[in-house]
């Protein structure tokens, strides 16, 4: 009973993620098919990887007939942030999160699922995380499939508009707490400023690596300037 309601809560929390994924993976499906993959292969990549930047870079490696070592190195660099997120999530897990659950749930650590889980007040249960992951994966894989299958048929104006959906969701996650807490406002502004510097001063830096550098530097500064005393101290009502 408890388990199922927790799964459902997760699934509901995952709906905006799934819709955002649908549009992003739609674009990925188009890209992958243009690079010479079948739409089935594109959907398999989405099902087994569940990540955006890493998949796009992976398709580029495949299209360029790169080595498997290059593929591994590219994935490691771009997806390294998931390791940090995993450590962060590990701090707020329900006791029901035993090793087998951790082995399964690890599949679902993405930027968006991490953001929703880590801004959750209560400890995360396996069922809750499975709920989010299931619905998000459904959106991610079906979007890839549809994009690969029918993407070219869609008007350019529609695909252009869909490109902003996932960022709209990011903005909706960071703006409200930034408006309430000076420390989070500082974090958001500094990360954005560093990210702009990386993009224009270090254009050869991959986007995944740039995110790691910006996020780590920013979090170090924020942690030094605004140390968080304990869980109850900082957040009023989030």
């Amino acid at each position: 009973m408890m388990k199922r309601s927790s799964f459902l809560r997760g699934a509901v929390a995952g709906i905006p993620i799934a819709l955002g994924y649908l549009s992003v993976s739609f674009a990925f499906g188009i890209t992958a098919v243009r690079a010479g993959l079948t739409y089935f292969q594109a959907a398999m990549i989405s099902l087994t990887n569940l990540t955006s930047a890493g998949q796009v870079a992976g398709v580029e490696v495949i299209a360029a007939s790169g080595s498997l070592l290059e593929m591994a190195a590219v994935q490691l660099t771009i997806n390294l942030r998931y390791a940090l997120m995993g450590i962060s999530l590990s701090q707020n897990l329900d006791p029901r999160f035993t090793l087998p659950h951790r082995l399964i749930a690890a599949y679902g650590i993405t930027d968006e699922i991490f953001a929703v889980c880590s801004t959750n007040e209560e400890p995360i249960t396996p069922a809750y995380m499975y709920g989010i992951t299931a619905i998000a994966t459904l959106g991610w894989v079906s979007g890839t499939f549809i994009g690969g299958f029918a993407g070219q048929a869609l008007p350019a104006a529609v695909t252009a508009a869909l490109g902003i959906v996932i960022y709209g969701m990011f903005i909706a996650i960071i703006v409200p707490p930034a408006a309430k807490h000076r420390s989070i406002l500082f974090t958001v502004l500094l990360a954005a400023a560093l990210s702009i510097l990386c993009k224009y001063l270090l254009p050869s830096l991959s986007s995944g690596f740039s995110v790691i550098i910006c996020a780590v530097l920013t979090s170090v500064f924020a942690a030094l300037l605004f140390p968080k005393k304990d869980e109850e101290g900082e957040v009023s009502e989030a």
């Binding site: 942030r81 940090l84 997120m85 450590i87 962060s88 701090q91 930027d111 991490f114 953001a115 880590s118 801004t119 252009a160 508009a161 490109g163 902003i164 960022y167 990011f170 903005i171 996650i173 960071i174 707490p177 930034a178 420390s183 989070i184 974090t187 958001v188 502004l189 500094l190 990360a191 954005a192 560093l194 990210s195 702009i196 993009k199 986007s207 740039s210 995110v211 910006c214 996020a215 780590v216 920013t218 979090s219 170090v220 924020a222 942690a223 030094l224 605004f226 140390p227 968080k228 005393k229 900082e234």
Partner: peptide
């Protein structure tokens, strides 16, 4: 406390860095 604070700010930093400036290129215009 330092590491806890670091992990607390991390998701906001990640999302902000992923959004800016990428969002301005997300529509092709």
């Amino acid at each position: 406390t330092f590491v806890k604070s670091l992990l607390y700010y991390m998701p906001y930093a990640v999302l902000s860095a992923m959004t800016i400036p990428a969002v301005f290129y997300s529509t092709g215009n």
